[in-house]
Design a protein around this nucleic acid. Structure first.
Lengths: 250, 250
DNA sequence: AACACTGTCCGATATAATCGGACAAGGCAC
DNA sequence: GTGCCTTGTCCGATTATATCGGACAGTGTT
């Protein structure tokens, strides 16, 4: 691991929705490096376009990140194939649809369609990350990962509790994952947020590997009314996308 | 400039729509560095999430770029970036500054700063709408809309006359829009209200699309005195805001 | 089965990142 | 206005570290 890149990564990680601007000195003390080193890092990143230097010589994230992100998204076939199917789902149910992949220890949204209902789920945005153990998407992605991978993720992130329904026991989680594999779908029954339910299903590519998951997020009261229908719709959508990615059962 | 970051930047620049995957050796020869150095760079970037290592040990762009890009986009809004620039303008000229976007058929003010002069323009408020064909803001926004959109707007709203200077002929309006595109700014010479002149310029975002317009409103007698200066100031301000929104001419 | 490719790992060397300090430029209080 | 902070930037010496060539293991091909 190149330590300069490591430091650059830590530096970029400082920027989030609540901290959009950093001065050299602030960043230096936060990262526990010399002010001059922070300056070297930040001015270099700025010259490269990864940071943006304001007039007051502070720094924000740079637009090159957007450019790179766009080329990534544009060249990911998953999105291209999934999007129209997601649109159909959204049109039919007017609920929020998510597409996610597993990145390191967490699920990352790579596409999203908002529901149009008055009471709708709106807590996430593209590129956002969520814990794998307590979301329909995350649990699906975990269920189709190797056992070592699951162990590693649990080791790294733990099983933090978000609601009374969050699975915090490792054994219980493993059993839940086994059940998901058997059934081919996963529920999130208010495990992240109260009043929020989801149902998710795996997306396979042409090699037969699960590479992503799709989910529908629905307020709990609506979800319980027609749970089976939502589940069938998501499973069907996942199957369609999988087929478009070259997956077929022999 | 930290050379490790420089190299990382060059490496990431290799990834575009036509070259979405790179192997270590490929990248090394392309960048003219040792294979092992390329490996150090790429595996580090992969551990940090900026690259994604495929099953065949090749590399694609990483999802962390999407995450960072999204926080950048979420935290840079038109208003936030435009406001300080508008304040500078207002401080310097003491005239009314407007920021507007196109919404359906009309321009909508999304920000406004009042001039402090004794005789000043005060006819609008935030969120107010105005006809697109007879204001500097509106004409700018029209000029950078598609032809069909312009046609649709004219069809819907017509070209009602407000003063003797209002453009009411469709062909004349289209020619005016073409001129605005060529020059990069628009005037309103007492076309809504007698004694009121404006100059407006387009604001681009990171995709190169015109998403808004900024204008200065000035009593006619003052405007004619130093028209060119006002125009230069507005064009310059629009350019600054555009840059802050990620726009840059290649 | 041998070969030609990969990507990865390792250890020595020379390079480049780091750090403290000095400097200039703003902002603020008095 | 003046002086005192604070900030970001620059510089040069030192030490830590990125670099490189070479060796190795794994794959797929001929």
């Amino acid at each position: 691991m190149l330590q300069t890149l490591q430091k650059a990564g830590e530096l970029l990680a400082l920027f989030d929705r609540d901290h959009t601007e950093w001065g050299v000195r602030e960043a230096a003390t936060k990262l526990k490096i010399a002010k001059s080193s922070a300056h070297d890092l930040m001015s270099s990143l700025a010259k490269l376009g990864f940071l943006n230097r304001t007039e007051e010589n502070r720094y924000r994230l740079g637009w090159r990140l957007v450019t790179l992100s766009e080329t990534l998204l544009a060249t990911t076939e998953l999105r291209k194939e999934a999007h129209p199917v997601m649109e159909e789902l959204a049109a039919q149910y007017q609920e929020t649809i998510h597409l996610a992949v597993l990145d390191d220890t967490q699920a990352v949204y790579v596409d999203k369609l908002e529901g149009r209902q008055a009471v709708r789920v709106e807590l996430t945005s593209l590129g956002a990350r969520l814990y794998a153990h307590c979301s329909a998407l995350g649990k699906v992605l975990l269920a189709y990962s190797s056992e070592e991978e699951v162990k590693r993720i649990i080791q790294t992130t733990g099983l933090p509790r978000f609601t009374e329904n969050t699975i915090t026991d490792e054994e219980e989680l493993l059993q839940a994952l086994a059940k998901i594999r058997k059934q081919g779908y996963a529920y999130d029954m208010e495990e992240i947020l109260l009043d929020l339910c989801c149902v998710g299903a795996p997306i396979y590519n042409y090699t037969g590997r699960v590479i992503a998951a799709i989910s529908m997020s629905i307020p709990a009261y609506r979800f319980r009314r027609s749970q089976t229908e939502y589940r069938a719709a998501i499973v069907r959508a996942a199957k369609i996308i999988s087929e478009r990615l070259g997956y077929y059962v022999t």
